[in-house]
Design a protein around this nucleic acid. Structure first.
Lengths: 214, 214
DNA sequence: TGAAATTTGACAGATATTTCACAAAAGACT
DNA sequence: AGTCTTTTGTGAAATATCTGTCAAATTTCA
């Protein structure tokens, strides 16, 4: 049970592990597994049971001594913790290959992320339909964001264009930015949350680990 | 200077920061900035100067007291550390939207990652040309990997198909897997390095941080 | 029903990571 | 040339994170 004045700061290391717990619990659920102990989950996930228990206990005591955790209950609780029971309206800014790929990635919708619009500066692709959505000219974006209660913007555009657009979006009331542009956005409005996906950096860490065998 | 029997294990926290240093140094280089102190870089990057110095010193003393770091030299050193002076042959397995998007992402090539082939099971897209490369049937993949010295496989396919293909690729001598399938691959061959990009998990952590404002 | 086995939640101890602080080296300035 | 300033590299201190342990609660089994 969460206390009313829950102020304890949860470390981001913990937060980053939650989606993985969530994924494994979802798989257990699909396999009609009703309960699971931290020990057994730890074996499947290759982490320590202690870590699982400690992570979960940041948010409340979801288990039962001698029993373990009820899979469905825990799955739903983690869903709530992550905010996945809500629906987020999303736009994708930059409808190139990556933007279109993300628009087509149906799995996001299962977690409550609904793509409402795609925007691009390139007149050649404006009007093209992607998964039932017409790519719009980016000049329409201000009106759209302001009127349609957009929560999250996905930035899949060149790094040169990203900072200005990010600041505009922040001004128009966006809550979060999922940034794929290879740059660190510094927004004036610090209340906007930025999550970076720097694919190049990910690939470089892979390079580091294999370099002596290539 | 690195000692000959360099056995010191570098923490992955450090490794994950290197590409970001590399990116900032690249920008300094583009702006013809010749030298930089850890203090100034720390302001630009919003990390502590101490962390920068400590991170770099895991690999050698690249700076000079009273001077700082020579931008070009440090850039090149980090490039070597990350293994970016090598060329990696890559195939993309799963030529759907995301696979094609990655194939088109020219920036990777700048860092030495060369896309040599795209494969898919779907006969409808086999033969389609993406950036000068024809999508091939996945049945050709074994021969291709074995003959063409492929180092890295990018997995952009459904999670059901990923484990088997990953194991096959490992058997055929691949060194690294850049995995976009939403699953944790457990390979028999432990010498293959796996780097996961779990986009859903990234989006969920964004959700966590904005959920109380949506 | 009662004894044995299981398993959590909590906390303490162990590791890991980050920051601080400063001697020593080099540059900058007069 | 000499003094002052800058700035690194390093070891130590401070934080943060992870793991081990165990009492207490509950389930399981006979």
């Amino acid at each position: 049970m969460l206390s009313k004045d829950e102020e304890k700061k949860i470390s981001s290391a913990v937060i980053k592990r939650l989606p993985r717990y969530y994924r494994y619990l979802g798989e257990l659920l699909e396999n009609d597994i009703e309960r699971i102990s931290s020990k057994e989950l730890s074996v499947r996930m290759d982490v320590t049971a202690s870590q699982i228990r400690q992570d979960l206990n940041n948010f409340g005591g979801f288990g039962q001594q001698g029993y373990g955790y009820n899979v469905e209950y825990l799955y739903n609780e983690i869903s709530k913790i992550l905010g996945l029971e809500k629906t987020y309206n999303i736009i994708i800014v930059g409808a190139g290959n990556l933007g279109q790929a993300l628009a087509n990635y149906i799995d996001f919708e299962k977690s409550g992320f609904v793509v409402k619009g795609l925007f691009d500066v390139n007149p050649k692709i404006v009007g093209i339909s992607v998964r039932g959505l017409e790519i719009q000219d980016i000049d329409n974006m201000e009106m759209y964001v302001k009127n349609k209660h957009i929560d999250i913007a996905v930035l899949t555009l060149p790094k040169q264009k990203a900072p200005k657009i990010a600041n505009d979006l922040a001004e128009w009331g966006i809550k979060g930015i999922w940034n794929f542009a290879p740059t660190d956005l510094q927004l004036k409005d610090k209340s906007v949350t930025i999550e970076n996906v720097h694919l190049s950096e990910s690939l470089m860490t892979l390079s580091y680990r294999i370099k002596d065998r290539v």
